[in-house]
Every structure is written in structure tokens, then in C-alpha cells.
Design a protein around this nucleic acid. Sequence first.
DNA 1: TCCATGCAAGAGCAGTGCTCTCGATTGTGT
DNA 2: ACACAATCGAGAGCACTGCTCTTGCATGGA
Lengths: 245, 245
Amino acid sequence: MSSSSSGSSGSRIAQGARARARMEVTAAIKDEARRQLAAEGAAKLSLRAVARELGMVSSALYRYFPSRDDLLTALIIDAYDSVGESAEAAHAEAVDAEAGPVRRWVAVAEAVRGWALRHPHEYALIYGSPVPGYVAPQTTVPPASRVGLLLIGIVREAHHGGGLAELPPVPAELAPEAERMAADLAPDLPPAAVAALVAAWAQLFGLVGFELFGQFHRVVEDRERFFRHAVGRLACGVGLVEAER
Amino acid sequence: MSSSSSGSSGSRIAQGARARARMEVTAAIKDEARRQLAAEGAAKLSLRAVARELGMVSSALYRYFPSRDDLLTALIIDAYDSVGESAEAAHAEAVDAEAGPVRRWVAVAEAVRGWALRHPHEYALIYGSPVPGYVAPQTTVPPASRVGLLLIGIVREAHHGGGLAELPPVPAELAPEAERMAADLAPDLPPAAVAALVAAWAQLFGLVGFELFGQFHRVVEDRERFFRHAVGRLACGVGLVEAER
DNA sequence: TCCATGCAAGAGCAGTGCTCTCGATTGTGT
DNA sequence: ACACAATCGAGAGCACTGCTCTTGCATGGA
């Protein structure tokens, strides 16, 4: 933007052409890596091939990403942000349409599924098997939480708007854990609802993963309708009810 | 098949020392590969390292497995069989203990979870992201179905024993698909139960996968109890009720 | 016993992640 | 305006991978 020269008055972007170029090259590397990821999968993603396609030599790439795993980490964070953004957009749209809690829940779930079908390899990267010796750095936590936070928000709003049915309390042996989870995630919700919510969150991705990874092959054919029905029942299991209006 | 020649009196094992040696070497390769798989994960599994550890040269290994992917396929089939066997054993034990449908369901689910925790990399191999360009050959289908068939069997027995609650019928838009699935999987069960069962099947592995792949990190602490409760509710969702006796 | 088969060994190819060094370009401080 | 220093790209090189091909040996089956 504001080229600058002396002033550097503006924001911290465009602070020097060097940094700009670095950002651009970094973005180009990630773009090309994403292309190869979508084309061949994470295992076939090769630093040398990325560099080759960008017309540079492989060693130059290490100026931008210290290792292949670091490049993967960057792609993982972007993928979490991407699916989170899709889900948030779908949620906002449902809110604009004055949809009730169940329809909001289903909208978010369908957004996640749609994103997964559009980016199968990126989905595998974040919700499939983790790469071998790789441990996710703390940086990935906030982007990874976006979908979960969205689901929590739906349930919380339903609770305060009267759209959350009473759930049977959790059995005594789970009560401490449920209360701990509730305190951490949503202190204003009953522990039984939080426990059901966390389970539904995992189960939602079980449905998406099974479809994406081929376990529904020759089992479920009309996957879109099946998914909508299943996540609808999931919403009921959390206690969401479509408020009358 | 029929070995022919002279006697061949015995079973089809021990038909020639040559074939025997081949079987043994094949098993040794798979064992060593499984060790490396457990130690480092599928991506780090190297044909050369396996051969090196076995004291042979890498090219010799290709006499037994035409490619690395074929070795992986063999491990995948073994893994499906292994988890299926664990689940079946747990089910048989529950049957011996005269447990009702819900307890049988939970026993199978906990067996799957336990196996997954004991063999995380093998679990990732079969229920995580599929390997890049790899498509599972038809040979993997029967072993991959064992857990699913077990769950179907539990629901079917419950249905015939009066331990299956009536489920609300599926909405009209899903009725054809539910009927088709029922016809394929369990013609004696109501379509709504089959649809719920398939969904619960996927959701069960969603719970296991989220725990195994670290998504429950700092979210769920007492995972064993949480899992037991969640799969219990899953069983209820399918319609299973603990029969009084 | 003799032959043919099955098998291991070795060399070799193309590709990978990653390291190191060496010029050259570039931005900045004096 | 000049020189210094930081940054970056290129190239060579190491150790490793999956996989192929040929050669020679040992063994199993008749």
C-alpha cells in the first residue's frame, strides 16, 4: 500500500520492499504447496517440486520455511482458518435468515461437510491422521477451535433464548468431568448439555470423515440427505429444539 | 489349488518347504513392518529399513511385496482383522455374561477404543486419512466390515428380543435411502433403525478418532468415562434399551 | 543325480529432505 | 553518497528413499 520511503508512517504492512517481497514469496510458496496438496495429497507434497514449479531452487525455499513440516504447519493453520471461516459464514447467513438453533446447527454442519468435500486433502491434514512425528504447535489451537466455539455459541444462544430442552443429568460417575468441561467451555450451560455438545462435536466429524474417507462406499448413497438427517438428530441430542416464532 | 502330485494328504499348509519358507519370510516382513509402523508411523515406514533390520537387501523384499503400497495393504487388512477380532471377542464376552443390548454395544465400542489406543498408528492407517494415491482393493472390504456387522447384529438381536425401542420414522425425503440401506444391510430391521445405526457407527469412530488424534486435548480429561457415557447415549439413539431380566 | 526354479545380492536410476558455502543483490546506517 | 551488513538465490553435496535390472548361487522337486 502506502509505499512510504522515508515515512513508514502507515501500518506495519509495506514496511520496506524487502518485507513485502518476502510476504509475497511466502504466499506464493503456500499457494503452490496447496495446489500440490490438493492434487496429490500431503504425503506427495515435495519441497523440491514446489520450488521447481516456482522457478527457484530447493535450497532457496528454506529461507522461508525451515523444514517441510513447518510448511505443513502453515497449511494446517490456513486450513483450520478456512473451514472455520466457511462455518462462520454459513452461521451468519442462518442468523440473517432468522433461523432457529437447529437450523443454525445444521447449517454449520453442512458448511463443514461442504468444505471437506471441496478440500479433501486439507481436511485429511487437519482431521485425519496426524503426520508422523509431528506435534501441532500451540499456534494451531485458536484456528482449530473456531468450529467448536461456533457450536458452543449456538447452544448458548438457544439456552438463553429458551430453545434448549432439558437434558437428563449425566450419571454420577461423569458428573465431575462434565462440570469441569462446563466450567472450561461454557459456565452458563448445564453440564449435561456441555457433555452432549462435546460428544456431538466429535460425532459430527465422524460423519464427515467416514463419508470423505470412503467408509460409506456401497453403504450410504444419498449422502447429502443422510448427513442432513443425522446432524439434525445430533442437534436434538444436544437438546436443541426449533423455537416457534 | 489342489496341489496334486502324489499324496498332498495333509492340509494345505506344509505343501513344500519352499512355500513354507516363503510364508515365514512374508510374516517376518509384516512383523517388522508393523514394528516400524508402531514406532514411527506409516509415512516413515521404509522398505529399505525393514529389509535392513531383517538382514536382507532391499531388492530381495520385492520378491514378497511388489511395492510399498502392497505392504501397506497387507498391514491394513491385518489391522482391520485385528480390531474386528478384538471387538468380536468383547462381544462374545458380553454375551457370555448375559449382558443386554446396551451393554453389548458399549462393550464393542470400548473394545474398539481400547484397540485404537493400543495401536494408534494402525488405527490411523485404517480410519485416518487414506494414503495418497492409494485405493483400497476389494480384498479389504470383508475385514473392514467386521465391526459394522457386529453392531448390526446387536441391533438385530435386540429387535427380535424386544430390546429395541420404536424410533420415529425418518422424514419423507430420507425414506427411500433409508429403505435402500435397510434392504442392503438388515432387511428385518425398520429403516429408521438402520439409518440411526449407520450414523451411530460413523459417530462412534468420530469419538475414537478425536480422542486419538488429539482433538480432545485440554477439552476432555477423563476420556474413558466420557467415552462410555457418549457411546451409551449413542446406543439409546439407535433405540437400544437394556432389557429387564 | 541333474535341471530348473526361486531367491538374494549388487549396481544403478530418479527422486527426496536438508546443509553448507559462495556470490550478488539490496536495504540501511554513517 | 558511500560502505557495511543483512538477506537472498544458486549450486554442490550428503544420506536417504522406492524401484528396476542383471547376475550368480543355492536349493527343491523329479
